[in-house]
Computed example of a mutant assay.
Amino acid sequence: MGFLGFLLLGLIAGAIAKAILPGKQGGGWLATLLLGVVGALLGGWLGGVLFHAPLQDFFSLQTWLLAILGSLVVLLVYGLVVGRGKRA
């Protein structure tokens, strides 16, 4: 998968993760892109380590599911970190 394909995957995975999570998450499209790309990296790494999953194909359902799950984890952690700063 090329660099632009990876960025597109991260953006879409981040947007889907934001739509799945309840509540209001801050950040615009740039934050969504960054969190999605980090989540896609995390999901791809965990998928490779735990399941020995090949993630080279952009149109693979396995690639998308791992990217979305990784983005969900990153968004949850981001929400916990940012949420604590607002309460103090």
Score class of each variant (00 low, 15 high):
residue 1 M to F: 05
residue 2 G to T: 15
residue 3 F to S: 00
residue 3 F to A: 14
residue 3 F to E: 07
residue 3 F to I: 13
residue 4 L to Q: 14
residue 4 L to T: 02
residue 4 L to C: 10
residue 4 L to H: 10
residue 4 L to I: 06
residue 6 F to I: 11
residue 7 L to T: 02
residue 8 L to V: 07
residue 9 L to I: 06
residue 10 G to R: 04
residue 10 G to W: 13
residue 11 L to K: 03
residue 13 A to I: 02
residue 14 G to M: 00
residue 15 A to K: 11
residue 16 I to V: 04
residue 17 A to K: 00
residue 17 A to G: 14
residue 17 A to S: 07
residue 17 A to C: 01
residue 18 K to C: 06
residue 19 A to N: 08
residue 19 A to Y: 08
residue 19 A to C: 11
residue 20 I to N: 13
residue 20 I to G: 12
residue 21 L to M: 14
residue 22 P to W: 04
residue 22 P to S: 03
residue 22 P to I: 05
residue 23 G to I: 00
residue 23 G to P: 09
residue 23 G to H: 01
residue 24 K to S: 07
residue 24 K to C: 00
residue 25 Q to L: 13
residue 26 G to I: 02
residue 26 G to Y: 01
residue 28 G to T: 05
residue 28 G to E: 08
residue 28 G to H: 06
residue 29 W to I: 13
residue 29 W to G: 04
residue 29 W to M: 06
residue 29 W to A: 15
residue 30 L to Y: 12
residue 30 L to A: 01
residue 32 T to N: 03
residue 32 T to P: 04
residue 32 T to M: 08
residue 32 T to S: 03
residue 32 T to D: 10
residue 33 L to Y: 09
residue 33 L to N: 09
residue 34 L to E: 08
residue 34 L to K: 15
residue 35 L to M: 01
residue 35 L to C: 10
residue 36 G to K: 15
residue 36 G to R: 06
residue 36 G to C: 02
residue 37 V to L: 13
residue 39 G to R: 00
residue 39 G to E: 02
residue 41 L to G: 02
residue 42 L to V: 11
residue 43 G to V: 04
residue 43 G to M: 02
residue 43 G to D: 04
residue 43 G to Y: 12
residue 43 G to N: 00
residue 44 G to H: 12
residue 45 W to H: 14
residue 45 W to N: 11
residue 45 W to E: 10
residue 47 G to P: 03
residue 47 G to C: 01
residue 47 G to F: 06
residue 48 G to W: 08
residue 48 G to Q: 03
residue 48 G to V: 09
residue 49 V to C: 06
residue 49 V to W: 15
residue 49 V to H: 08
residue 49 V to Y: 06
residue 49 V to P: 04
residue 50 L to Y: 14
residue 52 H to V: 13
residue 53 A to F: 03
residue 53 A to G: 07
residue 54 P to S: 12
residue 55 L to Y: 09
residue 55 L to D: 06
residue 55 L to R: 09
residue 56 Q to C: 15
residue 57 D to H: 09
residue 57 D to C: 10
residue 57 D to A: 13
residue 58 F to P: 00
residue 58 F to G: 15
residue 60 S to P: 09
residue 61 L to F: 07
residue 62 Q to L: 04
residue 62 Q to R: 05
residue 63 T to C: 02
residue 63 T to H: 01
residue 64 W to R: 05
residue 64 W to L: 12
residue 66 L to D: 12
residue 67 A to G: 09
residue 68 I to F: 01
residue 68 I to Y: 04
residue 68 I to G: 04
residue 70 G to Y: 07
residue 71 S to L: 07
residue 72 L to P: 12
residue 73 V to S: 05
residue 73 V to H: 13
residue 73 V to Y: 12
residue 73 V to C: 03
residue 75 L to S: 08
residue 75 L to P: 00
residue 77 V to Q: 04
residue 77 V to T: 05
residue 78 Y to D: 06
residue 78 Y to E: 10
residue 78 Y to S: 07
residue 78 Y to R: 11
residue 79 G to A: 05
residue 81 V to R: 13
residue 82 V to Y: 10
residue 83 G to N: 15
residue 83 G to D: 06
residue 83 G to E: 12
residue 84 R to N: 14
residue 84 R to G: 12
residue 85 G to I: 08
residue 86 K to R: 15
residue 87 R to S: 00
residue 87 R to Y: 06
residue 88 A to D: 11
